[in-house]
């Protein structure tokens, strides 16, 4: 199941806090899709969940300066 999070206009580190909160609620193999216009999150969110959690993370640029970051909870 996909869980969207709207993070447009949020400042760091709120996107990460929102995702961590959501991760506790979702089941294994669920995906979280965060939409953000914060350029830093394409580095900081990706590194955080890839390197610390070991989850697969994908970034899609959906518009100028807007990205969707897709995180799969795999364990």
């Amino acid at each position: 199941m996909d869980h969207p999070i709207d993070s447009m206009g949020d400042i760091c580190p709120i996107p990460i806090i929102k995702i961590e909160k959501k991760l506790k609620e979702v089941r294994v193999s669920d995906r979280i899709i965060l939409e953000s216009d914060h350029s830093c999150s394409t580095s900081s969110v990706v590194d955080h969940f890839k390197m610390k959690y070991g989850y697969p993370v994908e970034v899609i640029k959906v518009d100028e300066g807007v990205w969707q970051i897709i995180i799969t909870k795999n364990s």
């Binding site: 760091c12 580190p13 990460i16 806090i17 830093c40 900081s44 590194d47 955080h48």
Partner: peptide, 23 residues
């Protein structure tokens, strides 16, 4: 700074707020 998203603030803050020390 723009390309690397190098953020000093994250370096000082993320240790405490999200227990992350990458920056």
């Amino acid at each position: 700074l723009q390309r690397s998203r190098f953020c000093f603030a994250a370096g000082f803050r993320d240790i405490f707020m999200i227990r992350n020390t990458i920056v």
